[in-house]
């Protein structure tokens, strides 16, 4: 076909060129419901949320799972093996007993509450600090941004565990639970602050933000109505992942002897105490460790699947 003038059949439907309607059969989907859709089709999300739901129930109603008081320790029944009946207390020790004669299973059940609460409180506090500071720095910019960014840099330069060790030295006599929450929050907020700052900075240059500014919306209203809702989604995923970091960090602090002490029923404390009997009774270290790892893993999976669901880059593909 040299330079012949070729014309296709007129069969092409040109109506679509002018189409301004949407096929009525298509269901309306918001970004939110799309996210939910991709979440419930991710097996990792299903598994992790089921485990976390179970953990939540254990943490709220530990009595449903064991009748034994984890703090009632009978020295005559110390270090019993798996699945024995205590002669003295007449109670069945599913996972045996600790060196002090406490029921191991009960301690794991009750320890869930401590771990989840530490993770939850630290996540809420540190993410809130991070979001507020990050949003202020990113949205208002200028001198505020410089100050907040420098402060973030300073805190970021102190590794989480090390900073926590230093601060917990100071708080030796404070309430064991809250001092850990406070400490981890103080050194944990920096990453969410940095993320929020860059996310807000990106969102605020979007044209829809300029549009509402030109409509006369107040600067603060824009921040809360348009900027934060659009900027916050990556933070949610990171917050879930950070829960697992905090739960593990809490145990590490107990292990180092600066975190919670034996007055609290917690996995970390039990792991720390089990060091001495590592060779003779490794189960005492293993069971709370497994509980800890599963919890951390579930939050990790949850955060990762949320991240996959909201990551616009992946959605486009």
């Amino acid at each position: 076909m040299e330079n012949k003038h070729f014309v296709a059949d007129f069969a092409n439907n040109l109506d679509e060129v002018d189409a301004v309607t949407i096929h009525s059969s298509a269901k309306s989907v918001s970004a939110f419901s799309k996210t939910i859709y991709s979440l419930v089709h991710n097996p990792l999300f299903i598994v992790s949320s089921l485990i976390l739901f179970l953990l939540l129930i254990i943490a709220v109603f530990p009595g449903l799972f064991t009748q034994i008081d984890p703090t009632r320790c009978v020295i005559r029944e110390a270090s019993l093996p798996i699945g024995t009946n205590g002669e003295y207390t007449k109670s069945f020790h599913l996972l045996g007993t600790t060196g002090l004669g406490c029921d191991e299973f009960a301690r794991i059940i009750y320890g869930a509450r401590t771990s989840l609460l530490v993770g939850f409180f630290v996540m809420v506090i540190s993410t809130s600090i991070g979001c507020v500071l990050g949003a202020i720095a990113g949205y208002f910019g200028g001198i505020l941004d410089s100050i907040i960014s420098r402060i973030t840099d300073v805190f970021f330069a102190i590794p989480l565990i090390l900073g926590a060790v230093a601060l917990l030295q100071l708080l030796k006599d404070a309430d064991p639970f809250w001092k850990v929450v406070l400490t981890l929050s103080i050194f944990g907020w920096t990453s969410s602050a940095r993320l929020m700052r860059s996310s807000v900075m990106e969102t605020k240059t979007q044209e829809y933000v300029t549009s509402v500014r030109a409509l006369g919306m107040e600067k603060l209203t824009i921040l809360f109505k348009h900027v934060i809702p659009n900027a916050i989604s990556p933070i949610i995923a990171i917050a879930m992942i950070s829960m697992s970091v905090y739960i593990v960090a809490d145990s590490a602090l107990s292990f180092l002897g600066v975190g919670m002490n034996s007055s609290v029923v917690s996995w970390g404390v039990d792991i720390a105490n089990a060091q001495t009997t590592l060779q003779s009774n490794p189960g005492l270290l293993l069971y709370p460790s497994i509980a800890l790892a599963i919890t951390a893993l579930s939050f990790m999976f949850l955060g990762d699947s949320i991240n996959d669901a909201i990551d616009p880059k992946k959605r486009r593909r």
Binding site: V248, S289, L297, D304
Partner: peptide
């Protein structure tokens, strides 16, 4: 993901 969430000291003790 599993490796990231296993605490260092748990892994240390188990391997030891």
């Amino acid at each position: 993901l599993i490796l990231i969430s296993i605490p260092t000291f748990v892994l240390g003790f188990v391997c030891q």
